[in-house]
């Protein structure tokens, strides 16, 4: 299952222009995975996405723009998120939306299977 997660992260990273690092982080599942460069930065910023979720769980993405790059956060079922480090300091919403629409269902399916495997439910 972890291999499947790594594979999906790798695919997303390949599809995302200027992205160099990617991480899967979760508040519920005891699993975290990362791939590529600058994943230490993604780790450093991981508290912000989780605290920025609105209470009705409608958030689907964040952009955190810092000196040197943008951290794009995709929320998957809101308690799990994918963060991507993009070298560009310009937030590209259209690209983020395209990537979100393409990958969110795939990650959601995988998370559902991870839940079953972990027997959390």
């Amino acid at each position: 299952m972890n291999e499947e997660l790594e594979e999906l992260l790798e695919k997303l990273l390949g599809d995302y222009s200027d992205a160099i690092g990617i991480a899967f982080q979760s508040l519920e599942l005891p699993i975290a995975s990362h791939y590529g460069e600058k994943t230490d930065i993604l780790e450093k910023y991981k508290d912000i996405p989780m605290m920025s979720i609105d209470e009705s769980f409608n958030t689907s993405f964040n952009f955190i723009i810092t000196e040197g790059g943008t951290i794009v956060i995709f929320f998957i079922k809101n308690l799990h998120f994918i963060s991507v480090f993009v070298k560009n300091e310009m937030p590209n919403k259209e690209l983020a939306l395209r990537i979100y629409q393409k990958y969110a269902p795939k990650f959601e399916q995988l998370i559902n299977r991870l839940y079953e495997a972990e027997k959390i439910h």
């Binding site: 605290m51 609105d54 409608n58 958030t59 723009i65």
Partner: peptide
């Protein structure tokens, strides 16, 4: 909502210039 996100971005170590949050669709 505004103040919650504002305080999130204040962390001096993180040096955030902009922060964009999709609040709802």
């Amino acid at each position: 909502i505004v103040m919650r996100l504002y305080f999130l971005t204040l962390d001096p170590e993180k040096d955030i210039k902009f922060f964009i949050n999709q609040y709802e669709e």
